[in-house]
Simulated assay, not measured.
Amino acid sequence: MITLETLEKWLLVPTETERLEFKEAKQQFDSTKLLKYCVALANEGGGYIVLGVTDKRPCQVVGSLAWGTAEALNAKSLCRGSCAGRNQDVPQTGFTRTYC
């Protein structure tokens, strides 16, 4: 489970990496793009996509309503088999992280 402490550490990382991607996704995020990011991360051995955080420095938590909840994202067919059950809302932050 990702904690607030983990998020705070990630926000201090100087740049995104092959295994860590931030996406603002305030109101929406294209599900095809999300799938492509999941595939890219899987090809690198796994990683995290954090929705609701700006990808420009300094990173800011802005929250995301792209899918409402992690459960709503898990229900999308794009995540079946590749990311199913691996999306998590992080309490007190307003963001959802996806890992593959």
Rank of each mutant, 00 (worst) to 15 (best):
Ser77Met: 09
Ala75Gly: 12
Thr93Tyr: 04
Leu73Tyr: 02
Val50Glu: 06
Ala70His: 08
Gly47Glu: 03
Lys56Arg: 07
Glu44Ile: 01
Gly45Phe: 06
Lys23His: 01
Leu73Ile: 04
Leu20Thr: 03
Gly81Gln: 04
Lys9Asn: 10
Trp67Thr: 01
Asp55Lys: 10
Gly52Tyr: 11
Leu12Cys: 11
Ala70Pro: 05
Leu41Gln: 00
Asn87Pro: 08
Tyr37Pro: 01
Gly85Val: 06
Trp67Val: 00
Arg19Phe: 02
Asp30Val: 00
Val61Asp: 06
Gln88Glu: 14
Thr69His: 11
Thr98Met: 09
Gln28Arg: 02
Ile49Gln: 02
Glu71Thr: 12
Phe29Pro: 04
Ala40Thr: 05
Ala84Trp: 07
Pro58Ala: 13
Ala72Leu: 06
Pro58Gln: 10
Glu16Phe: 12
Trp67Ala: 09
Thr32Gly: 08
Leu7Tyr: 14
Asp89Lys: 14
Ala84Tyr: 14
Pro58Thr: 15
Ala66Glu: 01
Leu73Thr: 05
Glu44His: 12
Thr15Leu: 00
Cys79Gln: 02
Arg86Met: 08
Phe95Pro: 13
Gln28Leu: 03
Glu8His: 10
Ile2Arg: 01
Pro91Ser: 12
Gly94Asp: 06
Ala75Phe: 07
Pro14Trp: 08
Trp10Leu: 09
Asp89Ile: 11
Thr96Ala: 12
Phe95Arg: 14
Ser82Phe: 13
Thr98Ser: 10
Leu34His: 00
Thr98Ala: 11
Gly52Ile: 09
Lys26Gln: 04
Cys83Leu: 12
Lys36His: 13
Arg19Cys: 06
Val90Asp: 08
Glu5Tyr: 01
Arg97Thr: 11
Gly85Asp: 00
Asn74Arg: 11
Pro58Trp: 09
Thr93Glu: 10
Tyr48Pro: 07
Leu34Arg: 05
Ser77Ala: 08
Tyr99Ile: 05
Leu4Arg: 15
Val62Lys: 15
Val13Tyr: 00
Ala72Glu: 00
Asp89Phe: 13
Phe29Trp: 09
Thr96Glu: 11
Val39Asn: 09
Gly85Cys: 05
Gly68Leu: 02
Met1Glu: 06
Asp30Met: 00
Phe29His: 03
Thr17Tyr: 07
Gly47Pro: 09
Ala40Ser: 14
Leu12Glu: 15
Ser82Gln: 04
Leu35Cys: 10
Arg86Val: 01
Gly45Leu: 14
Thr98Tyr: 03
Trp67Cys: 03
Val13Arg: 03
Tyr37Glu: 00
Gly52Gln: 11
Leu51Gly: 10
Tyr99Gly: 15
Glu24Pro: 13
Phe95His: 15
Met1Pro: 01
Leu41Glu: 08
Ala84Met: 10
Gly94Arg: 09
Arg57Asp: 06
Ser31Glu: 07
Val50Asn: 13
Thr3Met: 11
Leu35Gly: 06
Tyr37Met: 00
Gly85Glu: 07
Ile49Lys: 08
Asn87Arg: 00
Ala42Trp: 03
Gln92Glu: 10
